[in-house]
């Protein structure tokens, strides 16, 4: 694989893992309040956020397997999820009000890249 496509697969897998973790994080009452000025998480939103979180993580596996094949892809994906979660915790701790925006934009980038890759 060329360096460019490795970089693309890395960014995409990280983006999907990060966005998935953001959805899980927002799906918890205390972090939802933390990230959204004390707003209360409704049970319906919580369900949705969890579903989105799982779907993004699953898409991340696909993207990683596309980049490195299934066996290496699964190992790399696990690493990306951990790295994404660590960066999320740091953002949540230093500037919680950016959490939602960052999550949505990163999810957008990841999904767009995935779409381009599938069409390509």
């Amino acid at each position: 694989m060329s360096n460019v496509s490795v970089l693309a697969a890395s960014l995409m897998t990280y983006a999907l893992a990060y966005a998935g973790m953001t959805a899980f994080c927002l799906g918890m009452e205390k972090h939802y309040a933390q990230a959204r000025d004390g707003a209360v998480l409704s049970p319906a939103s919580r369900k949705w956020l969890k579903a989105i979180g799982w779907s993004l993580l699953a898409l991340g596996i696909l993207s990683s397997a596309y980049g490195w094949g299934w066996s290496i892809g699964l190992v790399a994906w696990t690493g990306f999820v951990s790295a994404a979660a660590i960066s999320l915790v740091l953002l949540l701790s230093y500037s919680p009000n950016l959490l939602t925006k960052a999550g949505v934009s990163v999810a957008g980038i990841g999904l767009l890249a995935l779409l381009v890759m599938v069409i390509d």
Binding site: V6, S10, G67, W68, I72, V75, A76, G79, A83, I86
Partner: peptide, 22 residues
């Protein structure tokens, strides 16, 4: 192989490096 991480090029190397630092 899982321990010595010679696979997957620089992506996997960096993921292991970050894992190690954490």
């Amino acid at each position: 192989g899982l321990h010595i991480a010679m696979f997957g090029g620089w992506t996997v190397s960096w993921l292991y490096f970050i894992g190690g630092i954490v």
